[in-house]
């Protein structure tokens, strides 16, 4: 019966961890807002979390758009439907690849960095010393990072999609010779702002929230040793990637699945 006890213990451990994570979130966000102090801190984190992820997002977006166009063209040309390349690239990017790939890259680039940074701040007693200086580390350290993550990731996803569509144009129109007019016009006729673009943005806001929550919590809750921090960083990437893929299915079913 030992395994049963183990399952029970690990379940309780999970629930306790979830409780701690929620308390952390609560402490960080549900406090009397101090916009004058928060704004500069958040802008600084936007730089770290957003601007520094920009390069990888732009490069990945460009290449994914180009590959999509290449793959799509070879399939569509068999039906004589290469005119639909535009909507195919745009819809896949806006609805699916933009939010999801951005989220996965974000988890790897910014999420892991957040966890490691907060974990090291804990290990080097910076969080303790904030507390002893009567400054709440949840508000001072965690909250700006959460906000910056939630704000910057949808921005990155929008940039990713736009760059991807341009990449699709490069390959589809400039290289493979799809008619430029039909690339844009059929795309424009098919893609809807509120249904396709906004749903993608909503998805990426949800992903952003989950990833930054996991990343900040894993750092805050890490065991402050080199081993503990490396474990926490790995867990951030693994957990947030899984969460993104799982949530993506649920959100897609809710947004597009039901007629």
């Amino acid at each position: 019966m030992n395994w049963l006890a183990n399952i029970g213990a690990s379940t309780i451990e999970r629930v306790v961890m979830f409780g701690r994570a929620t308390l952390m979130l609560f402490g960080a966000l549900v406090a009397k807002p101090q916009p004058l102090k928060m704004l500069p801190l958040t802008i600084k984190q936007l730089y770290v979390v957003g601007v520094q992820s920009l390069l990888i997002i732009v490069v990945s977006g460009l290449f994914i758009g180009m590959v999509m166009a290449l793959q799509g063209y070879t399939i569509l040309v068999g039906y004589g439907a290469e005119g639909s390349l535009g909507p195919m690239v745009a819809l896949s990017l806006l609805r699916e690849l933009g939010p999801v790939v951005t989220a996965l890259l974000f988890a790897g680039r910014a999420g892991s960095a957040l966890t490691a940074e907060i974990g090291l701040m804990k290990a080097t007693e910076q969080l303790s010393s904030l507390e002893m200086m009567a400054v709440d580390p949840l508000r001072r350290v965690i909250a700006p990072r959460l906000w910056a993550g939630v704000i910057s990731m949808p921005m990155l996803a929008i940039i990713f999609s736009a760059v991807g569509i341009i990449g699709g144009h490069l390959v589809g129109v400039d290289w493979l010779g799809v008619d430029e007019g039909s690339y844009w016009s059929i795309m424009q006729a098919t893609v809807e702002w509120d249904k396709d673009v906004m749903n993608g943005v909503i998805k990426s806001i949800v992903f952003a929230f989950v990833i930054t929550w996991i990343a900040t919590f894993k750092g805050y809750d890490s065991i402050p040793t080199s081993e503990g921090i490396s474990k926490a960083t790995t867990e951030t990437v693994v957990f947030s990637s899984l969460a993104v893929l799982g949530l993506d299915f649920i959100l897609t079913a809710l947004m597009f699945g039901i007629e």
Binding site: I43, K44, Y47, G50, L94, A162, V163, M187, Q188, V191
Partner: peptide
């Protein structure tokens, strides 16, 4: 940092405009 964050926002708005004007109806 502030300058680059500003550029980041501008870039996002530009991308949003592409999506709004060229891509979506």
């Amino acid at each position: 940092a502030e300058l680059l964050v500003g550029l980041f926002v501008v870039l996002t708005i530009a991308a949003g405009l592409i999506l709004a004007l060229k891509v979506a109806n």
